[in-house]
């Protein structure tokens, strides 16, 4: 019981102090779980990140499921992921309850008028940084541009884009090996 509590507290701490989600969480998890608690070795941790990235879903949740599983099997994974998500759940819940009273205040409205275009910029920036990191060139640019236009202009569900991209990758790999 004591160890479950320790797992919960450790991951709740990680969840409470990482702002900005997934990738910001990795160094913090490493520090707690690898360096301080020595629950998991450094090489195992690198493998865990690799698995978390190849699975769908929220990166931070995926990592905590794996780390928890390593410690205490299924129950450990439940406790760890619950710990990692609980602080933000509570905080957002409070905001959801109170924000609708705040949002009518004049100065809050003024701030949000300017915050909205800034948020759009925050989403536009990773388009370019991610394109660079996955090595998009003039030839392959047709894939993200096509995907974006299908979703933006025709309202195609991103689910179909993901299925099509995965299938496309499989077919391309098959053809490349054959010829």
């Amino acid at each position: 019981m004591k160890q479950y509590w320790e797992i919960f507290i450790t991951f709740a701490k990680i969840g409470a102090f990482t702002i900005g989600g997934g990738y910001a969480m990795i160094p913090l998890i490493e520090k707690e779980v690898v360096d301080r608690k020595k629950w998991i070795s450094k090489t195992d941790f690198v493998d865990m990140i690799a698995i978390s990235q190849s699975a769908p879903g929220i990166l931070a949740v995926n990592i905590s499921i794996l780390a928890g599983y390593r410690l205490k099997k299924n129950r450990g994974s439940l406790v760890a992921s619950f710990g990692a998500t609980f602080p933000s759940f509570l905080m957002i819940l409070l905001i959801a309850v109170f924000f609708r009273q705040f949002e009518h205040i004049e100065w809050v409205q003024k701030m949000f008028k300017a915050i909205r275009p800034a948020v759009v910029a925050l989403i536009a920036v990773p388009v370019f940084t991610t394109a660079k990191s996955v090595g998009i060139n003039f030839k392959t640019a047709v894939i993200p541009i096509g995907a974006a236009l299908l979703i933006w202009l025709w309202g195609i569900s991103p689910v179909y884009i993901i299925i099509a991209a995965a299938t496309g990758g499989l077919i391309y790999g098959r053809l490349k090996r054959r010829f």
Binding site: S54, I123, A124, P126, V127, T130, A131, V134, I136, T140, I143, P144, I145, G146, A147, A148, I151, W152, P158, I161, I162, A164, A165, A166, T167, G168, G169, L170, Y172, G173
Partner: peptide, 14 residues
């Protein structure tokens, strides 16, 4: 994953 990576760029753009 070779297929998914460029598509995720499109998803962010959308």
């Amino acid at each position: 994953f070779r297929g998914l990576r460029p598509a995720t760029v499109g998803l962010i753009a959308a």
